[in-house]
Design a protein around this nucleic acid. Structure first.
Length: 587
RNA sequence: CGGGAUGUAGCGCAGCGGUAGCGCGCCUGCUUUGGGAGCAGGAUGUCGCAGGUUCGAUCCCUGCCAUCCCGACCA
């Protein structure tokens, strides 16, 4: 049956909703696809539901092709499994928690690793049962501190989450690759541009993870890419150690450097008082030694010092990914408990002896940015108030405990794989795949007997796609100033037929074309509203955004209708008898 | 959790001490029908909530709540 606009549960808005900032939110509300029910929570009207359903269908087909079986868990879950893995606490305020009448605690699941693991444990106990991949398409609940951008970051959203179970690491790799390939097919079928970036596994744990990002200005994820194919999340980029260079012959020398607590003041002081033999000192000639506090799970702070080129800042997210824990700049209390650290004048060496480092005087770990090449010389702190060292050379005058690749990345930095300069870009996360390894299976005791009759812990992967987010991402990528422009694969209808004017013949032609198109297997939206002016119908057709439009209007008297491509804007007069054939040929 | 803004009809907004208005949408009638029609008539509100000031508060004051934006956070 066609959608009939004369009776469809739909009201398009002529004006933009005031609370919608991003295009997808604005248009989805205006065109009557969704309505806000609460912050980050949306109701789905018939058109929105159809788009969502079509996306889900594509996901289902590709999951089946990848060998994954569909299941369905509750969204409402008891807290116990999440306590076992620690996530009841780890998620903090981001979990919606509730109690039943007996005061038993529940949560609305933010993700389902625990219960999937437990279900497999319930049912399976032999290696012969594995590998297994199962998935569901389910509502997820996260009490986001700040939901935003309509469907892009909601508190209730639909996610396809798949989980793989294998006995061996090699098996996990195979399962992982099967999901990865399925994701590529899904996003391609949805008509989305995407990049796969290596990512930080973060709170999910596990060894390897990749994100699928849809490039977009309004994306919340920063990633870098090179022209020849390198792409990575900013947190996950790893630079290799710069090769050693031949040190210059200048000996290191300490000098008083009054009033130079910052890199800028130090650089101008150096140029005035200790000019560079072959040019001008720049911020990149200085070695900035930052003191960081690594915060363990129990809240204990451990200080480390990291030397980075003076023209760069520490990127906190990269630091947290590198160290695998929360990281803060050292605070006043930290400096108080380490009076040997002279704020603003910290350096690796003091009085011609190594100062920073686990084995050195300070006993504070000292790590270096990988850009700091052996043999390179630096202006850096001398660990005395108003005192710096010039020509301090790595490998000759000081050493380090290791590297810390936590400096900010800049556009133009060379890609770590040598594929050229990096450019910065933003993207929306549309999929994320993880090799979880044995973290959850270990915690929840998921073991099977192997071929030798020995109990072995199962290794897992988890694979997520934000289905409702995809609705917004596609809308974000496919629209113009008039409205939405859905790809045929997800549009509410393949064809939008307008009966324009008041002429009975136009309505009859529209009805008969509708029947004809449906016989060809097309889903049709028929604008059969009586007494609505053509202008309104045209505007609504453009706003709603089905890929093809046929206008039955004045031309019907001469046996002609207009075939209109919503995406290209191309419009042509076509004989009624041949319009469907032409449409089928073009789509 | 910090900073900012805003809460008045379904949507977009105005009003600012004297008990509420405009546009769109909605209902009725007539006219109109290829780019969000015209005319006439009509329905719709705890002016976010609670206190306070005042003869009188949508308007001023205090507190709270909510929403949106920026930031922090975000499998």
């Amino acid at each position: 049956m066609p959608y009939r606009l004369s009776s469809l549960f739909l009201r398009t808005l002529r004006e933009d909703p005031a609370d919608a900032e991003v295009e997808s939110h604005r248009l989805l509300v205006r065109a009557g696809y969704i309505r806000r029910a609460a912050p980050g929570v949306f109701s789905w009207l018939p058109l929105g539901l159809m788009v969502k359903t079509k996306i889900e269908q594509i996901v289902r087909e590709e999951m089946a092709a990848a060998g994954a079986q569909e299941v369905f868990f509750p969204a409402l879950l008891p807290k116990e499994p999440y306590e076992v893995t620690g996530r009841w606490d780890d998620y903090g305020d981001n979990i919606f928690r509730l109690k039943d009448r007996k005061d038993a605690e529940y949560l609305l699941a933010p993700t389902h690793e625990e219960v999937f693991t437990l279900l497999v444990k319930d049912l399976y106990n032999s290696y012969k049962d594995l590998p297994l991949s199962i998935y569901q398409i389910q509502n997820k609940y996260r009490d986001e501190a700040r939901p935003r951008a309509g469907l892009l970051r909601g508190r209730e959203f639909v996610m396809k989450d798949a989980y793989s179970f294998d006995v061996t690491d090699e098996g996990l790799e195979v399962s992982y690759q099967a999901q990865r390939a399925a994701y590529e097919r899904i996003f391609t079928r949805l008509g989305l541009e995407y990049v796969i970036v290596s990512a930080d596994a973060g709170a999910m744990g596990g060894s390897k993870s990749e994100e699928f990002l849809s490039p977009s200005e309004i994306g919340e994820d920063s990633f870098v890419r090179s022209a020849s194919g390198f792409a990575a999340n900013v947190e996950a980029v790893r630079f290799s150690q710069s090769p050693a260079i031949t040190p210059n012959k200048q000996a290191a020398e300490d000098h008083a450097s009054p009033n130079t607590p910052t890199i800028a003041t130090l650089v101008s002081f150096s140029n005035e008082n200790h000019p560079k033999p072959d040019g001008t000192w720049e911020a990149s000639d200085t070695l900035k030694n930052v003191v960081l506090a690594l915060i363990a799970g129990d809240g204990k702070r451990r200080l480390v010092t990291v030397g980075i080129p003076g023209d760069r800042e520490v990127d906190q997210k990269r630091a947290e990914a590198w160290f695998g824990c929360d990281v803060e700049q050292a605070n006043e209390a930290d400096f108080k408990s380490h009076p040997e650290l002279v704020k603003g004048y910290i350096g690796p060496r003091k009085d011609s002896k190594q100062f920073l480092g686990l084995e050195a005087e300070s006993k504070i770990e000292y790590l270096l940015d990988p850009r700091i090449a052996e043999g390179s010389s630096w202006i850096t702190g001398a660990n005395k108030d108003q005192m710096h060292t010039w020509h301090l050379t790595f490998g000759r005058d000081f050493s380090a405990d290791g590297i810390a690749d936590i400096a900010e990345i800049r556009a133009g930095d060379p890609a770590p794989d040598g594929s050229g300069p990096l450019e910065m870009a933003r993207g929306i996360e549309i999929g994320h795949i993880f090799q979880l390894g044995r973290k959850y299976a270990e915690a929840l005791g998921l073991k099977v007997l192997d071929s030798n009759g020995k109990l072995v812990t199962v290794t897992m992967g988890s694979y997520g796609i934000g289905v409702t987010r995809l609705v917004a991402v596609i809308a974000e990528a496919c629209h113009d100033d008039k409205g939405l422009m859905w790809p045929d694969s997800v549009a509410p209808a393949n064809l939008h037929i307008i009966a324009a004017g008041k002429d009975e013949a136009a309505f009859e032609a529209a009805e008969s074309l509708t029947a004809g198109a449906e016989a060809l297997g097309l889903r049709v939206m028929l604008d059969d509203r009586p007494k609505v002016s053509p202008g309104v119908k045209f505007a609504d057709a453009e706003l709603i955004g089905n890929p093809w439009i046929i206008i039955c209007g004045r031309g019907v008297a001469e046996g002609e209708v207009e075939l209109w491509n919503r995406v290209t804007g191309e419009r042509s007069q076509v004989k009624i008898d041949s319009v469907l054939a032409e449409l089928m040929a073009k789509r």
